[in-house]
């Protein structure tokens, strides 16, 4: 697999990751990101995945995968034991996204989180018409969607600010995972996928 065929949002994540890092990929799927990063960035690490099919697929590809339920947290992982903890497109499906990010920033020196932006204009259109939106990015219906905690970019940044998590970088993409001028202008309205590079709040300074 070359960079050309890597999912564009995953390719952007690669830009944030320093070579030789130790990575934990939460909800790693078939292990696409880890396999790519191992080849191009010499990273080591593990993927966490709940789906048995995908676990088997990772094993078949020689990717370190640990079968686990993200809703059970990262109890089995030591604090600050990874350089990056990555979670792509899974935040909105968790019981407590806030606690999940707390765990991500406890275990990783940096956290990378991506999610679908619920502030996108298509979503707003759906709601304005009195319906739960079904969009190309959020294509499940309200009763069968795994997404139980959707948020807009503004909501997410408000949470980061309230808790003190530091946003080191942000990328907004449309559904073909590209950045355009409209997105740069009004990210909460035109961005469909939000990507954040996060760091925990400043540790309490010594007196």
């Amino acid at each position: 697999m070359s960079t050309a065929t890597l999912r564009p949002d995953l390719a952007l994540i690669c830009d944030w990751i320093k070579p030789g890092s130790r990575i934990l990929d939460l909800g790693c799927g078939d292990g696409e990101l880890l396999a790519h990063l191992a080849r191009t960035h010499q990273v080591t690490g593990y993927g966490l995945e709940i789906d048995p099919e995908k676990v088997a697929s990772c094993v078949e590809q020689g990717i370190n995968v640990i079968q686990a339920d993200l809703d059970e947290g990262l109890k089995g992982f030591e604090s600050q034991s990874f350089d990056y903890v990555v979670m792509t497109q899974a935040l909105q499906a968790l019981q407590r996204p806030d606690l999940a990010i707390e765990e991500i920033l406890r275990v990783g020196r940096f956290g990378i989180v991506t999610f679908p932006n619920f502030g996108h204009w298509r979503v707003r259109m759906g709601l304005a018409q009195g319906h739960m939106p079904v969009t190309p990015t959020l294509n499940e219906r309200w009763y069968d969607t795994p997404n139980i905690h959707l948020c807009s970019v503004d909501d997410f940044e408000r949470l980061c600010e309230d808790i003190g998590w530091r946003i080191l970088d942000r990328r907004m993409l449309n559904r073909s995972h590209r950045e355009g001028w409209r997105i740069r202008l009004r990210p909460n309205l035109f961005g469909e996928v939000a990507m954040y590079l996060l760091q925990d709040k400043e540790p309490a300074t010594d007196r």
């Binding site: 094993v59 995968v65 079968q67 089995g76 992982f77 034991s81």
Partner: peptide, 17 residues
């Protein structure tokens, strides 16, 4: 698995239903 991860070893873990 935890001990192997803490030791930085390669490990995969499957929980079979």
């Amino acid at each position: 698995v935890k001990a192997l991860v803490d030791a930085g070893r390669d490990v995969s873990y499957a929980l079979i239903d």
